[in-house]
Structure formats: C-alpha cells, structure tokens
C-alpha cells in the first residue's frame, strides 16, 4: 500500500497553514491528519477531535548525578557543551534544565555516578475526526526536542494509516525552515506552500522554497491575504515562478475569514471560498 503524504508549510507563521489545512482535510473521504506544529498546536481547535488515546512523550534522557558518590572532580563540567552542570560551591554538582541528554558527562565520570534517566518533554495524542484520524502533540513549553517529537508523531501517523488502510496523510507544518520544518518534510511527496502576500511572507516563502530545493521536493502555492498591493502581488508571482512552484489558488485579504475562524468554522463554510479549496484538493491529488 502506498501512502501519499502532503505537508502544508509556509516559512512565515500566521500565513494561514492551519486554517487552510483544516478546510482541505474535510474534503478527503478518509485521511490521517498530523499537526506538526507541536509547540503551537492549533488544528485540534478547528477540528474538535474526539481523543482516542494519549501518551507521555519521552524524547531524550537527561543526566542525573548521584550526589552522595560524586567526588567533585569536575570532569563532567569540562566536557558538557551545554553549560548544563552547576556547582553548588562546595563539592557537589547538579544538572540543570539545559541538559540535552548527550551522556558525555556519564562517559567521562571516573566514579560512574552519572546516569541517564527518562525525561517527559511532551504528550502525544491520537484522535478521531469525522473522516479519519488526527495525530497531534503538545510539547511542554520551553522544551527541546520538538523535531524529534514531530518525527515520532509522523511515525505514529504512518503506522495508523497502514493499520487502517488509509492512503493519505496531510501534515499541518510548523513555521520556519529549521529543525521542526525539516522534520515535517522528510519523506513527503508534495508540499503545499501557503504564501502570505506581505513583505515578510514573500521573504519567508523564498527561504522555504530554497529548503525544498535542497530536498528536491515539488511544491504548489496558495497565495493568502492577497490583492491589496499590485506591485507586491507581481513580485510574489515572479518569485513563485523563479522557485519552480505553481500558484493554484488565491485568497484575498478578508477580515471575514478570521471572524469565521473565531467561530471555529473553516473556509468551506464560506460559499465564495469553498471552490478555491476544492480546486486545491483536486490539484494535490493529481
């Protein structure tokens, strides 16, 4: 069984990824949705899923020093690249929040009094939506390892799709072009880029497009909040062509849209935009 994975990305935050994804998802007969924006997880707010299961996520172990047996030699402090080990001023060392769980301290400790212990950095959920399932997560605020958490829920989504014989996975991506974005993109067949027609949106789209070129990933473009500035609109069109994308839909700047989102509706509930979403659905299937 082959599974088709599409990621909705933007570079810039607030471009409209989640609101567009929520509408698009509803058009699939059956689908597994992934909310990969694990430290600002908003897709569940729009889709109102019924939670089926939840599990603590242990991303990375953290170091723990047995203070009783520690000789206070300080070798752990020397090796630690994260300034994660504090000295109490006398002879004891303790591990602080900066620990990334690399275990270098445990390796160099002559007394072998440092152990690596599991550390919960988030919670993963599997939920039921009208036409399938949603896999999502909440990172504990301030935690590291968001990229790893995204990889983990994407594996869960894949396993779920195989188990339930579903052939489509749609990923609502995080903003940016760094670890979380990369973690959301690996192994997808197609990227749907939501480009906010603004100076920031255009700049961030270009960065995203360069990242996609590195991964040799094709992309289609939805231009959002457009139509207010013709000169900028022309620059957007040129940039998409230059980066090998294709604009398949345009949504204007319309204050009615955030109002409808505040009522937890999607674009499908607005008669003028329903055909736009339907067209995108057709194009990403093609």
């Amino acid at each position: 069984m082959s599974i088709h994975q599409v990621a909705v990305m933007s570079g810039k935050g607030g471009a409209g990824k989640t609101s567009f994804t929520a509408a698009l998802l509803k058009l699939f007969p059956e689908v597994v949705a992934v909310d990969a924006d694990v430290n600002a997880s908003n897709l569940p707010i729009l889709l109102g899923p019924e939670q089926l299961s939840k599990a603590d996520y242990f991303g990375m172990d953290v170091a723990e020093i047995d203070r009783q047996s520690c000789s206070g030699c300080g070798k752990c402090v020397e090796i630690c690249a994260f300034e994660a080990i504090d000295h109490d001023g006398e002879k004891h060392f303790t591990v602080n929040d900066e620990c990334e769980g690399c275990a270098a301290c445990a390796w160099v400790c002559p007394q072998k009094v440092i152990s690596l212990v599991p550390h919960c950095s988030g919670r993963k959920y599997v939920s039921k939506i009208e036409n399938g399932f949603m896999v999502h997560a909440d990172l504990v605020p301030g935690e590291d390892n968001s990229g790893k958490l995204i990889a983990s829920i994407r594996e869960d989504a894949r396993a779920l799709a195989e188990e339930k014989q579903l052939t489509s996975i749609v990923i609502d991506g995080p903003p940016g072009t760094s670890c979380q974005a990369i973690s959301s993109l690996t192994g997808v067949q197609l990227v749907l880029a939501v480009l906010e027609e603004s100076l920031s949106g255009l700049s961030d789209y270009k960065r995203l497009a360069q990242l996609l070129e590195k991964f040799r990933l094709p992309h289609l473009v939805v231009v959002n909040k457009g139509g207010l500035n013709a000169e900028l609109g022309a620059r957007v069109d040129a940039a998409v062509i230059e980066h090998g994308g294709k604009i398949i839909a345009r949504i204007p700047f319309d204050p009615e849209i955030p109002q409808s989102l505040a009522r937890r509706e999607t674009l499908l509930d607005m008669p003028e935009y329903r055909p736009v979403v339907e067209e995108v659905f057709r194009q990403i299937q093609a």
Binding site: G142, E143, D144, G176
Partner: peptide
C-alpha cells in the same frame, strides 16, 4: 523573538 514555545523561544 521566534514563534513557538520551544528552546529557541526560551
């Protein structure tokens, strides 16, 4: 700052 609530925001 960056968006999100992970280590970069901290």
């Amino acid at each position: 700052g960056p968006p999100g609530n992970s280590c970069a925001a901290v």
